[in-house]
Design a protein around this nucleic acid. Structure first.
Length: 318
DNA sequence: GCAATTTGACCGCG
DNA sequence: CGCGGTCAAATTGC
Protein backbone atom coordinates (compact mmCIF):
# COMPACT_ATOMS: atom_id res chain seq x y z
CA UNK A 1 0.00 0.00 0.00
CA UNK A 2 1.06 3.46 -0.44
CA UNK A 3 0.18 4.39 3.07
CA UNK A 4 3.57 3.86 4.45
CA UNK A 5 5.51 6.74 3.26
CA UNK A 6 9.07 7.76 3.63
CA UNK A 7 7.95 11.12 4.82
CA UNK A 8 7.44 9.49 8.12
CA UNK A 9 11.10 9.61 8.63
CA UNK A 10 12.37 12.43 10.61
CA UNK A 11 14.85 14.28 8.54
CA UNK A 12 17.79 13.57 10.79
CA UNK A 13 17.03 9.96 10.84
CA UNK A 14 16.66 10.01 7.17
CA UNK A 15 19.99 11.54 6.87
CA UNK A 16 21.60 8.92 9.02
CA UNK A 17 20.11 6.29 6.89
CA UNK A 18 21.17 7.98 3.76
CA UNK A 19 24.68 8.24 4.95
CA UNK A 20 24.76 4.65 5.90
CA UNK A 21 23.34 3.62 2.64
CA UNK A 22 25.94 5.59 0.85
CA UNK A 23 28.72 4.25 2.96
CA UNK A 24 27.54 0.79 2.41
CA UNK A 25 27.41 1.26 -1.27
CA UNK A 26 30.88 2.59 -1.39
CA UNK A 27 32.14 -0.28 0.61
CA UNK A 28 30.36 -2.65 -1.68
CA UNK A 29 31.91 -1.09 -4.70
CA UNK A 30 35.25 -1.17 -3.04
CA UNK A 31 34.95 -4.78 -2.34
CA UNK A 32 33.88 -5.60 -5.80
CA UNK A 33 36.97 -3.91 -6.98
CA UNK A 34 39.31 -5.53 -4.56
CA UNK A 35 37.54 -8.63 -4.95
CA UNK A 36 38.38 -12.10 -4.33
CA UNK A 37 35.85 -12.58 -1.64
CA UNK A 38 35.17 -16.16 -2.30
CA UNK A 39 38.69 -17.17 -2.68
CA UNK A 40 39.78 -17.36 0.89
CA UNK A 41 38.44 -20.56 2.05
CA UNK A 42 40.89 -21.00 4.74
CA UNK A 43 41.66 -17.60 5.89
CA UNK A 44 40.33 -16.68 9.25
CA UNK A 45 41.42 -13.26 8.35
CA UNK A 46 40.79 -12.34 4.86
CA UNK A 47 42.31 -8.97 5.12
CA UNK A 48 40.88 -6.37 2.89
CA UNK A 49 37.95 -8.39 1.76
CA UNK A 50 36.90 -9.30 5.19
CA UNK A 51 37.52 -5.88 6.45
CA UNK A 52 35.20 -4.46 3.92
CA UNK A 53 32.79 -7.17 4.74
CA UNK A 54 32.83 -6.13 8.33
CA UNK A 55 32.29 -2.58 7.45
CA UNK A 56 29.37 -3.53 5.37
CA UNK A 57 27.97 -5.71 8.01
CA UNK A 58 28.17 -2.98 10.49
CA UNK A 59 26.37 -0.65 8.21
CA UNK A 60 23.90 -3.29 7.58
CA UNK A 61 23.26 -4.03 11.16
CA UNK A 62 22.77 -0.42 11.84
CA UNK A 63 20.38 0.00 9.04
CA UNK A 64 18.57 -3.06 9.94
CA UNK A 65 18.10 -2.00 13.49
CA UNK A 66 17.18 1.48 12.57
CA UNK A 67 14.71 0.48 10.02
CA UNK A 68 13.27 -2.09 12.32
CA UNK A 69 12.80 0.47 15.00
CA UNK A 70 11.37 2.71 12.46
CA UNK A 71 8.56 0.46 11.81
CA UNK A 72 8.19 -0.59 15.36
CA UNK A 73 7.83 2.89 16.64
CA UNK A 74 6.21 4.61 13.79
CA UNK A 75 3.05 3.77 12.14
CA UNK A 76 3.33 0.63 10.29
CA UNK A 77 1.09 -0.57 7.71
CA UNK A 78 -0.24 -3.40 9.59
CA UNK A 79 -2.61 -4.87 7.24
CA UNK A 80 -2.88 -8.18 8.72
CA UNK A 81 -5.70 -9.50 6.86
CA UNK A 82 -4.41 -9.78 3.42
CA UNK A 83 -3.32 -13.26 3.53
CA UNK A 84 -0.14 -13.91 1.85
CA UNK A 85 -2.12 -16.30 -0.13
CA UNK A 86 0.43 -18.61 1.20
CA UNK A 87 -0.35 -21.82 -0.44
CA UNK A 88 -3.70 -22.34 1.00
CA UNK A 89 -4.34 -25.90 0.28
CA UNK A 90 -1.35 -27.91 1.10
CA UNK A 91 -3.35 -30.24 3.22
CA UNK A 92 -4.86 -32.45 0.72
CA UNK A 93 -2.15 -32.05 -1.74
CA UNK A 94 -1.10 -35.59 -1.55
CA UNK A 95 -3.80 -37.21 -3.40
CA UNK A 96 -4.07 -40.53 -1.81
CA UNK A 97 -4.46 -42.28 -4.99
CA UNK A 98 -1.89 -44.86 -4.52
CA UNK A 99 -1.08 -45.38 -7.92
CA UNK A 100 1.23 -46.29 -10.49
CA UNK A 101 4.53 -47.51 -9.37
CA UNK A 102 5.95 -46.05 -12.47
CA UNK A 103 8.98 -43.91 -12.15
CA UNK A 104 7.05 -40.73 -12.36
CA UNK A 105 3.41 -41.04 -11.78
CA UNK A 106 2.98 -38.36 -14.33
CA UNK A 107 -0.07 -36.64 -13.02
CA UNK A 108 -1.00 -36.11 -9.52
CA UNK A 109 -3.97 -33.96 -9.72
CA UNK A 110 -2.82 -30.75 -8.25
CA UNK A 111 -5.41 -28.61 -9.86
CA UNK A 112 -6.70 -25.99 -7.56
CA UNK A 113 -4.24 -26.91 -4.90
CA UNK A 114 -1.57 -24.51 -5.74
CA UNK A 115 -1.91 -20.86 -5.22
CA UNK A 116 0.72 -18.59 -6.37
CA UNK A 117 1.58 -16.26 -3.61
CA UNK A 118 1.41 -12.61 -4.21
CA UNK A 119 4.72 -11.18 -3.47
CA UNK A 120 4.06 -8.82 -0.67
CA UNK A 121 7.37 -7.66 0.42
CA UNK A 122 10.69 -8.49 -0.99
CA UNK A 123 14.16 -7.19 -0.93
CA UNK A 124 17.12 -8.15 -2.91
CA UNK A 125 20.71 -8.50 -2.02
CA UNK A 126 23.82 -8.85 -4.01
CA UNK A 127 26.33 -10.89 -2.14
CA UNK A 128 29.34 -13.02 -2.78
CA UNK A 129 27.67 -15.76 -0.87
CA UNK A 130 24.26 -17.24 -0.77
CA UNK A 131 24.40 -18.04 2.87
CA UNK A 132 22.87 -16.09 5.60
CA UNK A 133 21.86 -16.50 9.15
CA UNK A 134 18.80 -18.51 8.48
CA UNK A 135 18.39 -22.09 7.62
CA UNK A 136 16.93 -22.65 4.23
CA UNK A 137 15.83 -25.67 2.37
CA UNK A 138 16.04 -25.73 -1.31
CA UNK A 139 12.84 -26.69 -2.99
CA UNK A 140 13.51 -25.97 -6.57
CA UNK A 141 15.78 -24.75 -9.23
CA UNK A 142 14.92 -23.39 -12.56
CA UNK A 143 16.59 -22.12 -15.60
CA UNK A 144 15.52 -18.64 -16.35
CA UNK A 145 15.04 -17.30 -19.76
CA UNK A 146 17.99 -15.29 -21.00
CA UNK A 147 19.82 -15.97 -17.85
CA UNK A 148 23.04 -17.80 -17.88
CA UNK A 149 22.60 -19.31 -14.47
CA UNK A 150 19.59 -21.04 -13.04
CA UNK A 151 17.63 -19.64 -10.18
CA UNK A 152 17.37 -21.58 -6.98
CA UNK A 153 14.41 -21.48 -4.69
CA UNK A 154 14.67 -21.82 -0.97
CA UNK A 155 12.19 -21.75 1.82
CA UNK A 156 12.68 -21.42 5.50
CA UNK A 157 13.54 -24.73 7.00
CA UNK A 158 10.95 -24.13 9.64
CA UNK A 159 8.14 -23.76 7.26
CA UNK A 160 6.65 -27.01 8.29
CA UNK A 161 7.15 -26.65 12.00
CA UNK A 162 6.18 -23.09 12.31
CA UNK A 163 4.66 -22.17 9.07
CA UNK A 164 7.32 -19.66 8.39
CA UNK A 165 6.60 -17.92 5.17
CA UNK A 166 10.00 -16.71 4.25
CA UNK A 167 11.44 -17.76 0.97
CA UNK A 168 14.33 -16.66 -1.05
CA UNK A 169 15.49 -16.94 -4.59
CA UNK A 170 19.11 -16.98 -5.45
CA UNK A 171 20.66 -16.40 -8.78
CA UNK A 172 24.20 -15.99 -9.77
CA UNK A 173 24.85 -12.78 -11.53
CA UNK A 174 25.86 -12.97 -15.10
CA UNK A 175 28.13 -10.04 -15.24
CA UNK A 176 29.70 -10.86 -11.95
CA UNK A 177 29.54 -14.58 -11.31
CA UNK A 178 31.19 -14.16 -7.97
CA UNK A 179 28.13 -12.43 -6.74
CA UNK A 180 24.72 -13.82 -6.11
CA UNK A 181 21.55 -11.97 -6.48
CA UNK A 182 19.27 -13.02 -3.70
CA UNK A 183 15.67 -12.06 -3.39
CA UNK A 184 14.08 -12.51 -0.03
CA UNK A 185 10.37 -12.81 -0.07
CA UNK A 186 8.31 -12.47 3.01
CA UNK A 187 9.76 -12.23 6.43
CA UNK A 188 10.47 -14.90 8.91
CA UNK A 189 7.66 -15.67 11.22
CA UNK A 190 9.56 -18.44 12.82
CA UNK A 191 11.68 -18.41 15.85
CA UNK A 192 15.29 -19.08 15.37
CA UNK A 193 16.20 -21.67 17.84
CA UNK A 194 19.75 -21.26 19.04
CA UNK A 195 20.75 -24.84 19.05
CA UNK A 196 19.64 -25.29 15.56
CA UNK A 197 22.20 -25.56 12.91
CA UNK A 198 23.04 -22.12 11.91
CA UNK A 199 23.25 -22.43 8.27
CA UNK A 200 21.60 -25.03 6.30
CA UNK A 201 21.78 -24.36 2.72
CA UNK A 202 22.46 -26.46 -0.19
CA UNK A 203 25.31 -27.39 -2.27
CA UNK A 204 26.29 -24.91 -4.83
CA UNK A 205 23.33 -25.01 -7.06
CA UNK A 206 25.17 -23.74 -10.00
CA UNK A 207 27.88 -26.20 -9.83
CA UNK A 208 25.37 -28.91 -9.70
CA UNK A 209 23.59 -27.33 -12.53
CA UNK A 210 26.67 -27.44 -14.61
CA UNK A 211 27.39 -30.92 -13.59
CA UNK A 212 24.04 -32.19 -14.37
CA UNK A 213 24.17 -30.72 -17.75
CA UNK A 214 27.50 -32.21 -18.50
CA UNK A 215 27.83 -35.30 -16.42
CA UNK A 216 24.25 -36.25 -16.31
CA UNK A 217 22.74 -36.46 -12.92
CA UNK A 218 23.63 -36.65 -9.37
CA UNK A 219 27.23 -36.14 -8.84
CA UNK A 220 26.68 -34.40 -5.65
CA UNK A 221 28.63 -31.74 -4.14
CA UNK A 222 29.21 -31.00 -0.53
CA UNK A 223 26.16 -30.37 1.46
CA UNK A 224 25.52 -27.94 4.12
CA UNK A 225 27.63 -29.76 6.62
CA UNK A 226 30.64 -28.77 4.71
CA UNK A 227 29.44 -25.49 3.52
CA UNK A 228 28.73 -24.63 7.05
CA UNK A 229 32.13 -23.38 7.68
CA UNK A 230 32.86 -21.78 4.45
CA UNK A 231 34.25 -18.56 5.54
CA UNK A 232 32.91 -16.77 2.56
CA UNK A 233 31.71 -14.47 5.12
CA UNK A 234 32.96 -11.16 5.99
CA UNK A 235 31.41 -10.60 2.74
CA UNK A 236 29.36 -7.83 1.54
CA UNK A 237 26.01 -7.50 0.22
CA UNK A 238 23.86 -4.86 -1.07
CA UNK A 239 20.24 -4.90 -0.35
CA UNK A 240 17.51 -3.19 -2.10
CA UNK A 241 14.24 -3.24 -0.42
CA UNK A 242 11.33 -3.42 -2.65
CA UNK A 243 8.27 -2.43 -0.83
CA UNK A 244 5.54 -3.55 -2.99
CA UNK A 245 2.58 -1.42 -3.60
CA UNK A 246 0.86 -4.35 -2.21
CA UNK A 247 1.37 -3.26 1.35
CA UNK A 248 2.77 -5.78 3.67
CA UNK A 249 0.57 -8.65 4.46
CA UNK A 250 3.34 -10.48 6.10
CA UNK A 251 3.23 -8.06 8.92
CA UNK A 252 1.25 -10.08 11.22
CA UNK A 253 1.84 -10.57 14.84
CA UNK A 254 5.02 -12.33 14.36
CA UNK A 255 6.40 -9.52 12.35
CA UNK A 256 5.21 -7.12 14.82
CA UNK A 257 7.34 -8.76 17.33
CA UNK A 258 10.16 -9.26 15.02
CA UNK A 259 11.31 -5.74 14.87
CA UNK A 260 11.79 -5.60 18.56
CA UNK A 261 12.59 -9.14 18.68
CA UNK A 262 15.38 -8.93 16.31
CA UNK A 263 17.22 -6.97 18.87
CA UNK A 264 16.84 -9.58 21.45
CA UNK A 265 17.38 -12.50 19.23
CA UNK A 266 20.33 -10.98 17.65
CA UNK A 267 22.05 -11.16 20.93
CA UNK A 268 21.82 -14.85 20.83
CA UNK A 269 21.98 -15.72 17.26
CA UNK A 270 22.07 -13.99 14.00
CA UNK A 271 18.80 -13.11 12.55
CA UNK A 272 18.30 -11.73 9.16
CA UNK A 273 15.09 -10.08 9.82
CA UNK A 274 14.43 -7.76 6.99
CA UNK A 275 14.51 -4.10 7.40
CA UNK A 276 10.96 -3.35 8.12
CA UNK A 277 11.03 0.15 6.98
CA UNK A 278 8.25 0.86 4.65
CA UNK A 279 9.62 3.24 2.21
CA UNK A 280 10.58 3.48 -1.32
CA UNK A 281 13.92 4.49 -0.24
CA UNK A 282 16.65 2.25 -1.22
CA UNK A 283 17.99 0.65 1.82
CA UNK A 284 21.18 -1.19 2.10
CA UNK A 285 21.44 -3.97 4.48
CA UNK A 286 23.38 -7.01 5.18
CA UNK A 287 22.18 -10.23 6.43
CA UNK A 288 25.41 -11.93 6.53
CA UNK A 289 26.05 -12.79 10.07
CA UNK A 290 27.59 -16.08 10.44
CA UNK A 291 27.90 -19.07 12.54
CA UNK A 292 29.38 -19.55 15.89
CA UNK A 293 32.91 -18.94 14.81
CA UNK A 294 31.93 -15.49 13.95
CA UNK A 295 30.63 -14.57 17.32
CA UNK A 296 33.43 -12.28 18.12
CA UNK A 297 33.15 -10.26 15.06
CA UNK A 298 29.48 -10.12 15.61
CA UNK A 299 29.88 -8.50 18.91
CA UNK A 300 32.08 -5.97 17.29
CA UNK A 301 29.33 -5.32 14.95
CA UNK A 302 26.96 -4.78 17.73
CA UNK A 303 29.29 -2.30 19.27
CA UNK A 304 29.23 -0.46 16.11
CA UNK A 305 25.54 -0.54 16.08
CA UNK A 306 25.39 0.79 19.53
CA UNK A 307 27.63 3.60 18.60
CA UNK A 308 25.39 4.34 15.77
CA UNK A 309 22.60 4.59 18.16
CA UNK A 310 24.32 7.39 19.85
CA UNK A 311 23.98 9.42 16.77
CA UNK A 312 20.37 9.03 16.79
CA UNK A 313 19.09 9.63 20.16
CA UNK A 314 15.63 8.76 19.14
CA UNK A 315 16.42 5.16 19.62
CA UNK A 316 16.51 3.53 22.93
CA UNK A 317 16.29 0.10 24.06
CA UNK A 318 15.87 -0.82 27.60
C1' DG B 1 16.22 -45.35 7.50
C1' DC B 2 16.05 -40.58 7.53
C1' DA B 3 16.76 -36.14 5.85
C1' DA B 4 18.21 -33.11 2.25
C1' DT B 5 18.66 -32.24 -2.60
C1' DT B 6 17.62 -32.88 -7.43
C1' DT B 7 14.76 -32.53 -11.16
C1' DG B 8 10.81 -33.02 -14.18
C1' DA B 9 6.09 -31.99 -14.03
C1' DC B 10 2.48 -29.17 -12.77
C1' DC B 11 0.13 -24.78 -12.14
C1' DG B 12 -1.18 -19.83 -12.34
C1' DC B 13 -0.45 -15.48 -14.26
C1' DG B 14 0.42 -12.19 -17.83
C1' DC C 1 1.00 -20.11 -24.60
C1' DG C 2 5.26 -19.27 -22.29
C1' DC C 3 7.55 -18.27 -18.21
C1' DG C 4 8.54 -18.63 -13.58
C1' DG C 5 7.29 -20.57 -9.05
C1' DT C 6 6.16 -24.75 -6.61
C1' DC C 7 5.44 -29.60 -5.81
C1' DA C 8 6.86 -34.09 -4.90
C1' DA C 9 8.96 -38.54 -6.39
C1' DA C 10 13.43 -40.08 -6.95
C1' DT C 11 17.94 -39.89 -5.64
C1' DT C 12 21.76 -39.27 -2.73
C1' DG C 13 24.46 -39.14 1.46
C1' DC C 14 25.04 -39.84 6.21
Amino acid sequence: MGTCLPEKLSSSREKVIKELVQGHEFATQLQIRLQKPCGNFDGRFSSAGELVGKILRSFSETLSVITSSESAGGEICQNLASSLGDSACYDDRRSEDSGESTKRPATKDRRGCYKRKKISQSWTTVCPTIEDSHAWRKYGQKGILNAKYPRSYFRCIRKDEQGCKATKQVQRMEDNPDMYHTTYIGSHTCRNIPEDPQIITDSDPWESYNLTSSVGSHSKIPRYEEQDHHPVMGSSCKVEQESKEDQTPSTDLADNVSSLDSLMWKDLIPVDEPPMMRSDYEVVDSIHLFSCTEVTSRSLDMDFVLESFDFDCDFHFD
